[in-house]
Amino acid sequence: MKDRLIFQRSISFYFSFLVIASAVLWSLLSFDLPDRELNYFENGVRFLKRFFPPDFSIWRTVLESFLETLRIAILATLLAIIFSIPIAFCGSRLHRNAWLRYLIRFSLNAIRTIPSLIWALLAVALVGPHPLAGVIALSFYSLGYLGKFFIDALNAVDLNIARHLRATGAHNIQAFQYGIFASVKPVIVSHSLWMLEYNIRSASIIGYVGAGGLGTLLHQYQEYYQWNRFCTVLIVIFIVVLLLDAANEIYRKKHLVERT
């Protein structure tokens, strides 16, 4: 019996190894390198050298664009949170209608399939090259993610708590607020902070297609080969992302208590 188990495990290990190795080899076929002899390392170093030293003389322009990016990201995240919570409620097991649950999950999957840049293209086509396009694009994109995260969080809630509160005389709203929402609130805030961080990064990119923010600057500096200014913008984005990540970590440590 024991030998048979060891044999089965060995077969399973070698089979997994074979599958992974085949997948890696197959992926390497994509690297169809040009015939010309190129010194990739030297090219890379030469390109990176153009980024330094960063040109901080443009700080005022970068700050203005950054504030626009921040406004786009905050508004988009806020709209996504507002719509995600009721949508997630209807898409989670808390809602009895199975068809509605499937429909919501399907729609959220469909929304997530479309990259934020494509959402931005669609939004620019709708309202023109304007920060509003950025807000619309990122709101939809974030809805896809936050909706899914919130559904997963609601599905993991221990329903006994709400059931208990209801049985001991609490109103349905009180049972939901303190039995369900109180349990998922830290997860919701944590995911929302992550989404805000993601949207700041995304809002910096969608400007490439005219949706406002730092992306417009990045696009402009890239067009004119002003890589040291490009670098300044990247540094600003990097610092903001680091700060948001730290804020998220602090929040999680303080408020998210796993049920042990």
Binding site: N160, I161, T168
Partner: peptide
């Protein structure tokens, strides 16, 4: 009206 100490210790962890 009832108070209920159930086996799940239905308390809100957060």
């Amino acid at each position: 009206s009832i108070a209920w100490i159930d086996q799940h210790s239905s308390l809100t962890a957060n």
